[in-house]
Amino acid sequence: MSNDKVIIADKLTKRFGDFTAVDAISFEVNKGEIFGFLGANGAGKTTAMRMLSGLSMPTSGKAIVAGFDIYRENEQIKRNIGYMSQKFSLYEDLTVKENIRFYAGIYGKSNQFIKEKTERVLRQLHLSAEADKLVKSLPLGWKQKLAFSVAIFHEPQLVFLDEPTGGVDPVTRREFWHMIYEAAASGITVFVTTHYMDEAEYCNRVSIMVDGRIDALDTPQQLKKTFSASSMDEVFLKLARKATRAAD
């Protein structure tokens, strides 16, 4: 395999009984890329993402994540990826610092590393003054940015963001994407699912899942051209209308 591919999926399939949630998807994600993973609810995005992040075993197919096989090298994959869920997953009853310490701790980082990096991250987030405040006292936008910083704190090769901007106002969303660009510039590959089509425009490449299959995969510009659409919104609607599967 080549070193500039962070994800290589080959006919990756997941069945639950008779139901094929993910139907032989194949795609590649390059290092440092911001990869948009789109699809209507129930299209199979979450299942695909769970397989790639080691939360779920595929029924068939192959995949290499961060250079490791998802069947055999689950442990190494886990060390090299980060994950942020749509719920932000911070502990509201812990302080900002304690949250960082905890997540860095379960990745086995040294105290020295945690201490130095915590200060740097808090300064970047302008959260130094709030370091010892409980997370529940922070506004939603700050929680979201903190959650992202926590997800990449251990410096993974790849970070999965599962609808990271749900319920956040447009200004904060823009600031958040700024953080995503910075992470990508520092070499972290970003794999992001979203429902906001304007966000899809920010991605380097976008894949659109329909009924468990990837029906389109290209740069936003190219997709708009192929589907002769003026926006990603239109592209998405054209594809999603073909879906036969009911959304969950």
């Binding site: 992040s53 080691g54 939360l55 442990e75 886990k78 060390r79 990826i81 980060g82 994950y83 942020m84 869920s85 749509q86 719920k87 932000f88 997953s89 911070l90 502990y91 997540y103 379960i106 990745y107 086995g108 997800a151 999965f160």
Partner: peptide, 13 residues
């Protein structure tokens, strides 16, 4: 419920 379990399951723990 909070979704933190998922994050931990993705971690090497």
């Amino acid at each position: 419920e909070m979704g933190t379990m998922e994050v931990m399951l993705v971690s090497p723990m």
